[in-house]
Amino acid sequence: MKFTESLALQGLSASIGSVGDAYDNALAESIIGLFKTEVVNRHGPFKTLTEVEFALMEWADWYNNARLHSRLDYLTPAEYEAAYYSQQSPRRPALV
């Protein structure tokens, strides 16, 4: 019920299924599945929660900054972002 109310307050509806269904977490579920496949299944089993947390931090850093991405012309996300911002004209500071 809270989920439905939150969507309604924002003027949104569920992207799949009937309005109010909890199907909008598909992206989160696919990232979790990717993490499980790439880290947990390949490098597990982990003995402590701390080992899992460190593995998650290392993977998230690699995934967000260092992986080569085909949709970015095989640049890393960090390289692509740096190239994008280097092509932008400098912004003038706002007047106070």
Rank of each mutant, 00 (worst) to 15 (best):
residue 1 M to L: 09
residue 2 K to M: 13
residue 2 K to V: 15
residue 6 S to M: 14
residue 7 L to A: 04
residue 7 L to N: 00
residue 9 L to Y: 06
residue 9 L to C: 10
residue 10 Q to S: 10
residue 11 G to A: 06
residue 11 G to Q: 05
residue 12 L to G: 00
residue 13 S to P: 05
residue 14 A to Q: 09
residue 14 A to P: 12
residue 14 A to H: 05
residue 15 S to W: 14
residue 15 S to D: 15
residue 16 I to N: 07
residue 16 I to S: 12
residue 17 G to V: 10
residue 18 S to H: 12
residue 18 S to C: 08
residue 19 V to F: 13
residue 19 V to I: 08
residue 20 G to S: 10
residue 21 D to W: 02
residue 21 D to E: 14
residue 22 A to D: 05
residue 22 A to S: 06
residue 22 A to E: 03
residue 22 A to Q: 07
residue 23 Y to L: 11
residue 23 Y to A: 07
residue 24 D to P: 02
residue 25 N to T: 05
residue 26 A to C: 11
residue 27 L to V: 13
residue 27 L to Y: 11
residue 28 A to V: 08
residue 29 E to L: 08
residue 31 I to W: 11
residue 32 I to Y: 04
residue 35 F to H: 00
residue 35 F to L: 10
residue 38 E to W: 05
residue 40 V to I: 05
residue 41 N to E: 09
residue 41 N to S: 10
residue 42 R to V: 05
residue 42 R to D: 01
residue 43 H to D: 10
residue 44 G to M: 01
residue 45 P to L: 07
residue 45 P to G: 08
residue 46 F to I: 10
residue 46 F to Q: 03
residue 48 T to N: 05
residue 48 T to R: 03
residue 49 L to E: 08
residue 49 L to D: 13
residue 50 T to R: 06
residue 50 T to D: 11
residue 50 T to P: 04
residue 51 E to I: 00
residue 52 V to E: 00
residue 52 V to Q: 01
residue 52 V to M: 00
residue 54 F to I: 14
residue 54 F to K: 02
residue 56 L to T: 13
residue 56 L to K: 00
residue 57 M to C: 11
residue 57 M to N: 09
residue 58 E to K: 02
residue 58 E to W: 01
residue 59 W to C: 12
residue 59 W to N: 07
residue 60 A to C: 14
residue 60 A to H: 10
residue 61 D to H: 14
residue 62 W to M: 06
residue 62 W to F: 15
residue 63 Y to P: 00
residue 63 Y to Q: 04
residue 63 Y to N: 04
residue 63 Y to I: 01
residue 64 N to Q: 07
residue 64 N to L: 06
residue 65 N to H: 12
residue 65 N to R: 04
residue 66 A to Y: 00
residue 66 A to S: 15
residue 66 A to L: 11
residue 67 R to M: 03
residue 67 R to G: 02
residue 67 R to I: 10
residue 68 L to M: 06
residue 68 L to E: 02
residue 69 H to I: 01
residue 69 H to V: 14
residue 69 H to R: 10
residue 70 S to K: 07
residue 71 R to K: 15
residue 71 R to A: 15
residue 71 R to G: 13
residue 73 D to R: 04
residue 73 D to A: 14
residue 74 Y to L: 07
residue 77 P to D: 12
residue 78 A to V: 07
residue 80 Y to A: 15
residue 83 A to P: 01
residue 84 Y to C: 08
residue 85 Y to S: 09
residue 85 Y to Q: 12
residue 86 S to C: 04
residue 86 S to V: 02
residue 87 Q to G: 13
residue 89 S to V: 04
residue 90 P to G: 00
residue 91 R to S: 11
residue 92 R to V: 01
residue 93 P to R: 13
residue 93 P to I: 15
residue 93 P to N: 15
residue 95 L to M: 13
residue 95 L to C: 11
residue 96 V to C: 11
residue 96 V to N: 09
